[in-house]
Design a protein around this nucleic acid. Sequence first.
DNA 1: GCAATAATGAGATTGGATCTTGTTATTGTC
DNA 2: GACAATAACAAGATCCAATCTCATTATTGC
Lengths: 144, 144
Amino acid sequence: MADDAREKWLAEAKRRMRSAGMRSGQSRTAVMELLARDGRCLMSAQDVVDAMSARGASSRASVYRVLDTLHELGMLHRIDSGDGVARFEIADPDEHHHHAVNEATGEITTFTDPVLEASIKAIAARLGLELTSHDVILRGTPAR
Amino acid sequence: MADDAREKWLAEAKRRMRSAGMRSGQSRTAVMELLARDGRCLMSAQDVVDAMSARGASSRASVYRVLDTLHELGMLHRIDSGDGVARFEIADPDEHHHHAVNEATGEITTFTDPVLEASIKAIAARLGLELTSHDVILRGTPAR
DNA sequence: GCAATAATGAGATTGGATCTTGTTATTGTC
DNA sequence: GACAATAACAAGATCCAATCTCATTATTGC
């Protein structure tokens, strides 16, 4: 993701927090800035906890709280990859993607697909569902 | 799912276990029969543990082992619904479906869609991935 | 600057899942 | 059918992500 998109994300996250009547404590600020500056794709909460404690700030409880808050505010995607660890990534409104897991290496790649998105929209309409979110996860091994 | 499909599943599960060189201990047998006879859609491991201990059999460890084994043999789907609890359901080779979560009620419905499946196949091919499994989860609220 | 109160930190706690170890049961062989 | 080899099991300890508690600290409107 481009640097300016990250800064935009940070500004938007702060704006939404403020307009939700939330104060800007040091943990919230620090976690948001970490995610905006150094956030990798699919960080686990523990990754964030480690990164924060490496710079001597933010307790585990706070990190979990902030991640949860950002998720509720729609600023983070939460992906449950199946290993019992929730992973987060910045929600860039300009880029909607899904994930494919290489089961041989554990490597995760992202992809986008308009046909897939269209069919998901059609399914939701058929089910009478106002879609709030959706996940698609592919798992497989490299084809020979 | 029809009763005969369940019996077919049970027979196939036993066959695969046997051909994988595994013995048919009482825990394996009991868990498989429970799943085949009374298995609901999306049972958690704990649900199975409770059901087994209600009939005075199978330790928690055994239940987890058997579920894991059945999953590895391709006889169970494992769905991580995002609440930290893995859920399982019988893998009926004749019926491949996905899940939609009603976020207002927590209710889970299933759906199938050929267009969706086709696009997923196409994506996997594009990524050079030999697909072993894939999940699609929709979340939303009932449209007014 | 002050008071109200939201946010935080540290550690305890929860709960799903896994691991360990001694025991039991299954299976091929005789 | 009995026996030995060994796979499978049971019970409980343990692990670890996530949540909760509550006293302390920091932020914000006034």
